[in-house]
């Protein structure tokens, strides 16, 4: 049974791989037939060669690293604030009464729309980028942390009480772990949104990072680098999201069924 499942999973992966290869092959072939000018839409191989001939690998790595550190800090700040505010508003009724309406009022504003305001407040430098990235993480995390807290099964809290736990100990030993599955979902969504904000922030104003890389390439008319960069951004997003997913499944998946 298990080996069967494994082999069918392997088959699926193989089919998926064939699909990806087929897509690239078609793209490559169409490009060579000249239906679409290669100046406008280069083939994958051309995009890669164009990038690697103009840009050393270390420079590409530098852009990836710059973007990753940026999104990491923004995510860390926004996510931690989201956890603190969300948990507090779910645990203490009065915090919820005060903060929920504020959050619900500001949540419909897409984080992107904060970019001009961030620039007014913090200038064109790094802080305004970190700010909008952190907003991307904050809203999903604060919402899921709050939801997780208010949906903790009250019987678990009562069980802890019958074992003599009170106050903070119930919060940290019972309510927080019980709300982790909800929180993890918010964290994953938050990472995705942070990443989206990162690209936007780097498009607007930056001198390094993957968003800058493609925006700069546009100014120079290097379409190969633009396409390479877009795929690179997608890959980095996919890989980091996958890594977070694996960590969540390892830690929470062993006791919780998603």
């Amino acid at each position: 049974m298990n080996t069967q499942e494994n082999s069918s999973k392997l088959n699926d992966t193989a089919l998926g791989l064939i699909g990806v290869i087929a897509l690239f092959a078609i793209w490559e072939i169409v490009s060579y037939t000249g239906i679409i000018s290669q100046e406008i839409f280069p083939s994958p191989s051309q995009a890669v060669t164009a990038t690697l001939t103009t840009m050393p690998l270390s420079e590409i790595g530098g852009h990836v690293w710059a973007s990753l550190t940026r999104v990491f800090w923004g995510f860390l700040i926004g996510g931690s604030l989201g956890i603190i505010v969300g948990v507090a508003s779910g645990w203490y009724a009065w915090v919820g009464v005060l903060t929920r309406p504020l959050i619900e009022l500001t949540r419909p504003i897409p984080p992107l729309a904060w970019i001009p305001m961030a620039i007014i407040w913090l200038g064109l430098g790094e802080p305004s980028k970190i700010f909008v990235i952190s907003l991307g993480a904050f809203f999903p995390v604060v919402t899921s942390a709050y939801k997780g807290m208010i949906s903790v099964d009250p019987v678990l809290l009562r069980a802890a009480q019958t074992m003599g736990l009170k106050g903070w100990r119930i919060l940290f030993q019972v309510a927080l772990p019980a709300s982790l599955p909800d929180l993890a979902t918010g964290i994953r969504i938050g990472w995705g949104l942070s990443f989206g904000m990162l690209v936007a922030a780097e498009l607007v104003a930056a001198n390094e990072g993957m968003g800058f890389m493609i925006m700069h390439a546009r100014e120079l008319g290097q379409v190969g680098i633009i396409i390479f960069g877009i795929v690179l951004i997608g890959v980095v997003n996919l890989v980091t999201d996958y890594a977070i997913g694996v960590v969540i499944r390892r830690q929470i998946g062993k006791w919780h069924t998603y």
Partner: peptide
């Protein structure tokens, strides 16, 4: 208050799933 020599078993086991 609860605790203090009074153990309790609930209908929906109320085990900590983690």
């Amino acid at each position: 208050g609860p605790g203090d020599g009074k153990g309790m078993v609930f209908q929906q086991h109320a085990l900590f799933p983690w």
